[in-house]
Design a protein around this nucleic acid. Structure first.
Lengths: 225, 225
DNA sequence: AAACTATCTGAACGTCCGTATAAAAAGTCA
DNA sequence: TGACTTTTTATACGGACGTTCAGATAGTTT
């Protein structure tokens, strides 16, 4: 394995080479993110990523390490940001008080939908990538630990509202909520095929239907305990 | 491409070789189904499938054709059976009358859950495979046309019950229902991780929660039209 | 200037891929 | 039995894969 240029103090360095290297590394990670999102881990080749990033083959290994490591880096890169958005939204609700199931669903789903819709196309690729790997335990394990803590906060809040609900049921409905959210991002082709109307360009257009669905679903499932 | 042994009359043949060949073909398809379900199309090699089926390399091509063709065959093989189960369930409801949203949800989901749970492990692999490819438009297109007609029947029935709902909303909630169903089959790891309890062995254990969730979700989303 | 370091290039490596095919084996029918 | 067909084996081919690395290049420090 090549020694990777990881031990750079993020600020205060005056070496222009490090800054350029970091920029190249970002280009590689962005390209990898787009490729993995579009085709999945196994179907993507290092050479594709290099071409997409407009660098030569060796640069991908130099900045990204092995293919597996590169994939892991891409997966982990954005979790902190997304977690922060969800935590902030939850904190805002808690400060306000009078929280409903709908509030929680909306707070959890909206950051992701916004990211997948009008954000940076790079974020869009990331959202697609998460939607892709979530049905594969082998890959999903790599992000599970990163997302679960925040999910647990939401679960705790739901249980505060519905104290009678079992832990398992709450965990199940949150998982179903996430699955619904991801399916909207991953594949709107199906909806348009079934409804006969063209697919909306933005996942946000489905926000209200999605929130209604998940809210109603959670309330119903917890009422039946 | 090798000429594939496809032009065999299914019955009345006295040639034992054809029967043996058909049996081998089934073993190849079964092995391919398990492999594709576990790892996805790109990650699986023909040699893996051959090893899994306990045949030599050439036999896979002989009975399955190219890798793409083999994949398509595996995808299409079970759709007729599954469609029939769903259609029968719908017909039974229509004969009885007084159909509720919950009835429709249950009729649509249960065949799949049963298949994924206590059925043939081969059917289980198929369920996993569908769950995997549904987030990939490129592959999903191959089963879309096979499942959509029955889905449309269910949509028509929902619209009969809720005449005010828009076509797009109904298509959306059915898609969300399917996504929820698939997520239960594909990954129960997440639920157990979030709830702290061990995962149930059978997807059917989640049936009532799943049906509650989808029923409540559909009713809520359609009420808000 | 020279010494040094980080980044990048281009080419090569051994391995495994999907596919094809000639020949052997097994079974059927005259 | 011998002609014929279907299935299976064993092997080979060209190509693409992930990874490595010596050396070129560019920027920094002394």
């Amino acid at each position: 394995m090549p020694q990777m240029p990881d031990h750079k103090e993020p600020s205060g360095n005056t070496d222009g080479r490090l800054a350029r290297g970091e920029a190249t590394k970002d280009r590689v990670l962005d390209a990898a993110e787009r490729c993995f999102a579009a085709h999945g881990f196994a179907a993507v080749t290092i050479r594709q990523i290099a071409r997409e990033a407009e660098v030569t083959l060796g640069v991908v290994s130099f900045h990204g390490g092995s293919k597996e490591l590169l994939f892991g880096t891409v997966l982990a890169r954005r979790t902190a940001t997304l977690n922060a958005l969800r935590t902030d939204a939850l904190n805002a609700l808690q400060a306000r008080g009078g929280i409903t199931i709908r509030d929680l669903v909306d707070a959890y789903l909206t950051p992701y939908l916004e990211i997948a819709s009008r954000g940076d196309p790079q974020w869009r690729a990331y959202a697609q990538l998460i939607a892709r790997i979530v049905s594969d335990d082998q890959y999903y394990m790599q992000v599970r630990d990163l997302y679960d803590p925040v999910a647990r906060d939401y679960i705790a809040e739901i249980r505060r509202i519905r104290p009678d609900a079992s832990a398992k049921t709450v965990a199940t409905v949150l998982t179903l909520t996430v699955a619904s959210m991801l399916s909207i991002v991953a594949s709107r082709v199906r909806i348009s095929g079934l409804s006969g109307e063209p697919a909306s360009e933005s996942a946000l257009d489905y926000r209200s239907t999605l929130v209604d669905f998940c809210t109603g679903g959670i309330e119903q499932a917890l009422a039946a305990h």
